[in-house]
């Protein structure tokens, strides 16, 4: 019995697509919330400045913080992406090792 390469490629694509589709939906929801909240923060700062509700030092602090929050948003996205890459990687390994196991009849430790 030989390994069906076309079937293996199709299985790998399926495994990766399922994970990516699911994770992208979650990441999109998070991104939308963050973008809305960051825009709201800019609006709140502008309103407080117009109404003289915050002094100069606090205004500078809020503006610097907004920049830091945007950076942390990007860092979080990168962290989420790392988890997705890990899941795809492990799914691909699992499919490949499973295919080899079925052809050779030899058990492989997928968790290794």
């Amino acid at each position: 019995m030989s390994l069906d390469v076309n079937q293996l490629v199709a299985d790998i694509k399926d495994a990766a697509s399922t994970i990516i589709d699911n994770d992208v939906a979650e990441i999109r929801g998070f991104s939308e919330r963050q973008v809305q909240a960051l825009a709201k923060q800019a609006q709140l700062i502008a309103t407080a400045m117009i109404n003289d509700e915050i002094e100069e030092d606090l205004r500078d602090y809020f503006l610097d913080s907004l920049e830091d929050m945007a950076l942390n948003f990007a860092k979080t996205l990168r962290g989420l992406l790392t988890v997705t890459i890990e899941k795809v990687w492990n799914a691909v390994v699992s499919v490949i090792w499973g295919a080899i196991e079925s052809v050779t009849g030899l058990p492989l430790k997928v968790g290794a």
């Binding site: 309103t47 109404n51 915050i54 913080s65």
Partner: peptide, 16 residues
């Protein structure tokens, strides 16, 4: 107004 800005900032970071 300042409380609203502090709060929204915390909400953003906590969501992350």
């Amino acid at each position: 107004g300042a409380v609203k800005i502090f709060k929204n900032g915390v909400v953003i970071s906590m969501d992350q």
